[in-house]
Design a protein around this nucleic acid. Structure first.
Lengths: 233, 233
DNA sequence: GGATGGCAGTGACATAAGTCATTCCACCTG
DNA sequence: CAGGTGGAATGACTTATGTCACTGCCATCC
């Protein structure tokens, strides 16, 4: 990967750092290190000491926890302009979760010391960080809510609905889209195992709400699918 | 409740605000409002717009989510010197969870506007806030991990162990302590229902690890109880 | 004393979730 | 074409979790 990315431009598009002057961006960019990861490579593992802030410049990464039994629970998937590990940078603790690259990914890395210093110089950045961390907290609360209150069937219906709305194309048969990953990946995301994904998809199909063919999905009844979320779990 | 509490003193003991000068504490205290809640009263409900920072001066509060079916999931219990809703103060969104007083509770309240202004004037406070929010984020990730990877039996064993270590007294029979609430409350905390608490307690007792009598618990085998956490769930 | 209400224990049962083993199928590679 | 590989479907089974209904205990209040 010899391709170059303009780091200052990436930084400017980062939610955390928007509204900074070009000069400020440049000074920050000067302190970043470019890191490249190929698909599947680990940025860091849960429990390691945190040494800095990671900004995704290109590609996508998956933030997740692993259990003793080899199960996974995905906390978030982050793309360009998003940051990873904003929080341990500040509280000094270890990384709470592991992160791997989903695709070939380019990271702008700022050391903990440099970023902290930058925040002191630019108090409004600290407030931005707070907003970002706040959003992440909401995400996590949402995951807790799902894990605690909903069935896998409902979680599956929910993700299918989101996919249909964001990536689906309307056709004569219904709303069509393609699953973004294998059943296994979907299972990790929902905090379960492959078989249950398979079975629940089949069940939704049997009920006439969907048509599934490998990764191709056609939602035939959006209303019905939405109703699954309401049915008491 | 006519009893008065020195707000500036409380603020000084708050993790968020330690290391401030007495003058600064005074100026902040001048902007706080004292609020009193009796046991069971709601500070606010999930979804309401956030209007300020709550600092627990006396008593305890419970932060939790509610499901459609009336189930609850406790996110945290906070006591004196701890803050509630540090985050929505900054990201401007609604409260992500509800909070009620567990006991008669006194709250020092600072309006969103005042606290934000204070943070701009005192950038190091913003960093403190980040540290606190960071700790909260770790808490939440911990909850997700538990919900996703462990059985109720394991979660119960884990809380019993923590209680034994923090509040237990060693006697001839083992480590004795008293459950801090009803089975129902414990169930909410673990994200389950009363009956399962009852059954799992009985099961642990049948296995010789515990002796239970209503809320009095004697751990007879700390090692064995700890081993429950390791056994694959 | 009797009534009441909150809490705890328990059996019977229903359903959700997870495990294991096997088969199938599409695709690639030599 | 044979063989291998990875993902997916599926049946049989076990376990975990949740629901409902009922019982009993104990404190409190009239």
């Amino acid at each position: 990967m010899t391709e170059r990315t303009d780091l200052a431009a990436v930084l400017g598009k980062t939610g955390l750092l928007s509204n900074l002057s070009p000069a400020e961006l440049q000074s920050l960019a000067a302190r970043t290190v470019r890191k490249l990861f190929s698909a599947g490579e680990w940025l860091f593992a849960e429990g390691e000491p945190c040494n800095g802030l990671h900004i995704v410049a290109r590609g996508r990464v998956r933030i997740f926890k692993t259990s003793m039994n080899g199960r996974e629970q995905v906390l978030a998937v982050e793309g360009p302009g998003r940051t990873v590990a904003e929080l341990p940078v500040f509280d000094g603790g270890p990384y709470p979760a592991s992160v791997v690259a989903l695709e070939d990914t380019e990271i702008a890395f700022i050391s903990q010391r440099d970023f902290r210093a930058f925040c002191i110089e630019h108090p409004e950045v600290a407030l931005k960080v707070l907003a970002v961390v706040g959003a992440r907290l909401r995400q996590l609360v949402g995951i807790i809510e799902e894990l605690s209150f909903t069935t896998i069937r409902q979680r599956l219906a929910s993700t299918l609905l989101k996919l249909a709305q964001s990536q689906g194309t309307k056709t004569a048969r219904g709303v069509e889209f393609r699953l973004p990953g294998s059943h296994q990946e979907l299972a990790n995301q929902l905090g379960t195992v492959r078989e249950l994904i398979s079975r629940n998809l089949m069940r939704l199909q049997a009920e006439g709400l969907l048509e599934v063919d490998a990764r191709e999905v056609v939602v035939k009844d959006m209303q019905g699918l939405a109703a699954v979320l309401e049915a008491q779990g």
